[in-house]
Design a protein around this nucleic acid. Sequence first.
DNA 1: TCTCGAACGAGAGCACCGCTCTCCCTTTCT
DNA 2: AGAAAGGGAGAGCGGTGCTCTCGTTCGAGA
Lengths: 238, 238
Amino acid sequence: MLSIWGILAPMNAPRTARERARAELTAEITDAARRQLADVGPTDLSLRAIARDLGMASSAIYRYFASRDALLTALIVDAYDSLGEAVEAAEALVDRGDHLGRWMTATRAARAWALDHRHEYSLIYGSPVPGYAAPTDTIDPAGRVGLVVAAILADAAEAGVLGMVAGPQPVDGLIEPGVVDQLGADPAHAAAGVQAWTWLFGAISFELFGHYNNVVVDPDEWFDDAMARLAHLAGLTA
Amino acid sequence: MLSIWGILAPMNAPRTARERARAELTAEITDAARRQLADVGPTDLSLRAIARDLGMASSAIYRYFASRDALLTALIVDAYDSLGEAVEAAEALVDRGDHLGRWMTATRAARAWALDHRHEYSLIYGSPVPGYAAPTDTIDPAGRVGLVVAAILADAAEAGVLGMVAGPQPVDGLIEPGVVDQLGADPAHAAAGVQAWTWLFGAISFELFGHYNNVVVDPDEWFDDAMARLAHLAGLTA
DNA sequence: TCTCGAACGAGAGCACCGCTCTCCCTTTCT
DNA sequence: AGAAAGGGAGAGCGGTGCTCTCGTTCGAGA
């Protein structure tokens, strides 16, 4: 039943001119915001400047976003998606059996994305924006990088190449059961995975926010070295 | 030569009434700022509100701080010192020979301080404030927690109870030589120490900024467990 | 096809912000 | 005592997020 009607007006897509214009303008606003975010940082992001950039009245923006925070939230979701996509795309190119290689590639991709999108990164992994009360919209996209890590660990476990967690074994019940399921591994490896995930973004944040100044010599080398050791911690050796 | 003159006007202290008043007012301003910071977050910290709180004209603040960023920088230094002091004080109470205990106590103190001073924490470990270009004043106080970690590792090394770094050995030259010296250990343990330090604040940030929501069951337990495993990574087992 | 309501853009305006400048008084130094 | 520096208050500038009102335009139902 793929009628011409269906093609001209596909389901779940804007049908009227007004709806199409609305969708386009919404995208244009977020685009302009992202563009502005490239050189000013979340705090200085100005609704009026975005409006000027688009040649419209600042009040008109409020037809599309209830507030500056709402716009920021949209950008946060986009940023999570952009980061997730970058990591997924890079990791997908690696031989499925090379679990350590997949881990290194995924983490390098995350760091590279962060360095290329500093302000977007600090939007999602810096301090939360003032009034922002972690809307549920962000929960899903936030998990994408975690899911990649999960898949790598799960595949390694299935292949039987997941070694013991290094050091004292994590006690059970630390990680939410649902997350453990997603990780497809035992609780100990789930904990190690979350620990690795924490360190990944901790290290990126430290580098981006300047805490490694006068401490780390070569950030590239440091990151790779630490990531390899971290993989070992999680039992990922091949 | 401790003359009455010297007692009335000790060296390096405000001598005139004007200088004393200046020092007091400067402190009052930072106090008011810190008070405001307790419930609004760095971005919303308002110079005018501070002035209102102190019953003075907003323009008068500029006699004491060149700009809002300058005030923020002062708060950053204070926050680093406050955190450093809290960690040092807690760690000092532990038996010097109990290196693992010192590590656990120090890291727990850091987390406790962060939970008690959320906005001050995000001021120093969240995304850098907009125009802020990490003034050199902040370098020294920022290292205090690192120095505590350093001392623990160095003492353990001296006592001969510092085990091997877990997993693949870090390559040399990752960490600035000066920092390695401070850590009083070999480059491998220095790298592991920096890695542990990174994870410490990465985990605190993740908890504070909400990234552990729906992932970690009990943050207290999680923190302790991970910290113990991390100590093992750095070779700290006793 | 016409009509009426919803969507929309523009503009003025409010309260707030950081910051500057000027004016005037007080304190300190010479 | 006089000059110079320090410090407070107030007005004001350009900016912000956000609201409200007022026309216009679009689109769906009669």
